[in-house]
Amino acid sequence: MTRISLLSDQNDSHSHAGEESDSTPHQMIEIEEEDDKSPTQKIKDLEVCVPIVYGTMSFWLGRKATETQSHTWTVYVRGATNEDLGVVIKKVVFQLHPSFTNARRVVESPPFELTERGWGEFEIAISIFFHNDVCDKQLDLFHHLKLYSEVEHGPLSTKKPVIIESYDEIVFSDPSEEFLARVLNHPSVIVPQLPATLNLPPAPIEDVHEKKRGDTKDHPLGQWFIRFSEADELLKLAEARQQVQNYIVKLRRRLSMLEGSSPTLKTSVS
């Protein structure tokens, strides 16, 4: 349904990085070894993540539908809990189908969304650009715009939209101290337990009053947003793991019964 891809090559003038990504596997292993401990200047072994939901929602126009504009749809990147993503994301570029005028649409401030009218489904490339202290590389997502539901085959309804959303998390490895200090207590960002020895520079004072609200909590389409539950998924996985583990135990028992002489195997597989 949705394809996600990371491109290390840079098309945009805003970013100039990417040289490091060409390093050889040999170097990677070296880094891995030295990475074990020792919190130096850079904050290593730390990953900051931003849960996002991206997707499209489309409404059929009903009586107002014309040949070329049968639906109105919105593509968006929102926080998974509808928090303001503006602290991390500088801008989002939506690349539409070339038949649209100005197919490359740039949204410079949150909420990062775009509403259009059309009649056809196509793949939207979503490029996310971050603030300078966050990361100088962009992140590319792909989302297929859906206007017609594949699940419901009833008559078209103007009331009920077709929603396709994907949950994902943007992960920043080795974040800068500056960034970390800025987002430490922001609800849209998940920062793990910091080592006690870490001294972060003081967070810059933001004048809250001047800032425009960028969250999507009272979004007009908010009632349709899908709530993604981690707990359900974890529960299902735990059940599955239990089943597999039971089976492994049974297999081991049979194996050791068959071959009482090889206890080495039993330990090595675990």
């Binding site: 996600i4 891809s5 990371l6 290390s8 990085a17 490091e20 990504s21 390093s23 596997p25 990677m28 292993i29 880094i31 891995e32 990475d35 993540c49 971050f130 966050v134 990361c135 590389k137 992140l139 997502l141 994902d168 998390e169 943007i170 992960v171 920043f172 490895s173 080795d174």
Partner: peptide, 18 residues
């Protein structure tokens, strides 16, 4: 370990990609 290291080199990536 190698995969984790190469991910770290990216500095930013998606969880699904990881």
């Amino acid at each position: 370990a190698a995969a984790a290291a190469s991910l770290r080199m990216l500095r930013v990536y998606l969880r699904t990609y990881a």
